[in-house]
Design a protein around this nucleic acid. Structure first.
Lengths: 334, 334
DNA sequence: GTCGCTTTTGCAAGCGTGTGCAAATGCTGC
DNA sequence: GCAGCATTTGCACACGCTTGCAAAAGCGAC
């Protein structure tokens, strides 16, 4: 009964005593309407509670204004920080974010992208997983833009935003050595995503260049609990490391907690720790974790400014961003 | 040039040698199509890469399948956990989440709701702020459903989901007393949202009933840093509290860190601490925070099941959920 | 084959909007 | 008042889909 439909441009036109095109033009920026009729339309619209139907507009313009964010592990500190930056940036540019959570089963990135297509999203930003080539091709062919964040992939078409993971790893290796550490370790998850592996390989290579080996230990997903497990594995070795680079801050937090509370070790006196992401908890005084900052605002800005750009993009566009080292108290010296 | 439009039902129909209605019916559940033509359509659709245009479908059906999530402080642990639960639940029910971040200026909840209307969202879930009555009325009048989570409001129409904040506060007060604490304190932010105030008032009332006064201190937003500041304020008093209930876990974390590292206090020996939300960090061994768990999954289930329900909702629907006490090590005894 | 019935199919109208085109209007200068 | 021009306005079609309705097709029993 209260299923009275939304008020349409037609009704506004009648109330304002103008044609329906006039009201349409009033709400289309850059259209030609006289100030007089424009005002009449605005008044009528206000009185009736009219709002342009973006579904219909999207249908006509072939541009929905929707951008899909395809993301897993949404409630992780780093992911949610990036999500925040992206939504704000999108809203700034007059777009609206459609959020698709791929935490369920796998292959769900493809499912998510399919959903994006159904809603004729203007673009999709992928923060997790990597979709099939067949479906990205479909997106691209239909003029949908694609952004891959921290998914080091080499296909043509999408914008790829990455960090200088390997370089950061090298920097932290020298920092460890400068702090007098000689027995280096790397703590990773088993996820094996390109950026995690880049950090690992970069660290191992840099250490080798400095004449040292690295104990590498991997476990589970990229979370706090995994950090604890890896600590268990590393700190029960007959030769304990005196410095450990954790692939993410969450791993580092878990590692630090286990090292302190379970192995009664003192950080940074007995062991130096570094992380990656600069999540909020890294700055909490229980951790004081030295880490690399993901430039989330820059990432968001780059992604959004590219996908709203008028010009057809250069075919194989890559952006490589720098991760700043945030020095705190989990490494000696400084 | 590559602006080749998406493939339409028309093209699929031609390729399959059937009418446009046939392909439409193939993708409409519960429509009458013979298995033979259905298969022909599916084959043709697959070959052409056809996907139903949900913009057009939404236009016709007057049901977009979109649900708006209106939320601020997205990257906060509790909020992002709730966000995660909501998106999963929505996807489960065949809906898709449109995420609107209201972190910017104020009045932006109204802006967000306006956006929801433009996209003809079937429903909106509001996790922050409280919209004007005028605009909620507009939503309701147009058949859009509204869910308010933890925003204790008394208007007609929306579903309101709340926790038993005051009751939880009372429970923690007795727990403190049972642990031998006599000088109680409450740490709050200045946000003054209904649920925060309910916790504060509930705690003060319960303490009074037990014959005790409560030192109340409020500062800034609901975050870690505010917790530190409140600790500063409470622990420099000439009479220090021996138990503090923090309105949120983030406040509690900040409080604990300041108490330990700045005031060298031992928890729970010298001071007992409790929080609210049960964010992930509460379980980290640096904190071991005794706290109340927000039943995020239940909240999400209640919200989504209500808004996808067929039946016209009862006019003034409220759901009051229970917050379980998660006992850890920040309170003596147990 | 024919009748009565159910299932399937195509037609066409309609959802609310944007926009090219031609007609109408307003304005300027004589 | 009129020609000449720029601006505004309305008409009508298009966008891709759903769905009521009537015609067509299938089917079982005689």
């Amino acid at each position: 009964m209260s299923q009275k439909l939304f008020v349409s441009a037609q009704e506004v036109a009648e109330k304002a005593g103008v044609s329906r095109s006039a009201v349409s033009r009033t709400f289309t920026s850059g259209a030609s309407v006289s100030p007089k009729t424009r005002q009449k339309v605005l008044d009528a619209a206000e009185a009736l509670g009219y709002h342009v139907n973006h579904l219909a507009r999207g249908l006509m313009r072939n541009e929905s204004g929707i951008v899909c964010l395809i993301v897993s592990e949404i409630s992780t500190p780093y992911r949610s920080a990036l999500l925040r930056a992206l939504t704000l940036q999108l809203q700034n540019s007059g777009k609206v974010a459609m959020l698709i959570n791929t935490d369920r089963s796998d292959g769900s990135v493809d499912l998510a992208l399919r959903q994006a297509i159904r809603y004729r999203a203007d673009a999709s930003i992928i923060l997790s997983g990597l979709p099939d080539k067949s479906i990205t091709d479909l997106c691209l062919k239909n003029g949908q833009r694609l952004v891959l964040i921290n998914r080091d992939d080499d296909r043509e078409g999408p914008l790829k935003i990455n960090l200088d993971d390997a370089d950061a790893a090298a920097r932290i290796a020298t920092a460890f050595v400068r702090a007098g550490c000689r027995k280096l370790a790397f703590a990773n998850s088993q996820a094996g995503t390109p950026s995690l592996m880049a950090r690992e390989h970069g660290f191992v290579a840099a250490a080798r260049a400095l004449g040292m080996d690295v104990m590498v230990e991997r476990f589970g997903h990229t979370g706090y609990e995994s950090g604890r497990v890896v600590a268990q594995q590393l700190l029960t070795r007959k030769e304990r490391p005196d410095a450990v680079f954790c692939a993410t801050d969450l791993l580092a937090c878990g590692f630090m907690d286990a090292a302190r509370h379970q192995f009664s070790m003192s950080i940074p006196d007995q062991i130096c720790v570094a992380g990656f992401d600069d999540i909020e908890q890294a700055s909490w005084s229980s951790y004081g974790l030295t880490t690399f900052a993901q430039p989330v605002d820059t990432i968001a800005r780059e992604a959004v400014s590219w996908l709203v750009a008028e010009t057809a993009e250069p075919e194989n566009h890559k952006v490589r961003l720098h991760a700043d080292l945030v020095w705190r108290t989990s490494i000696r010296g400084g």
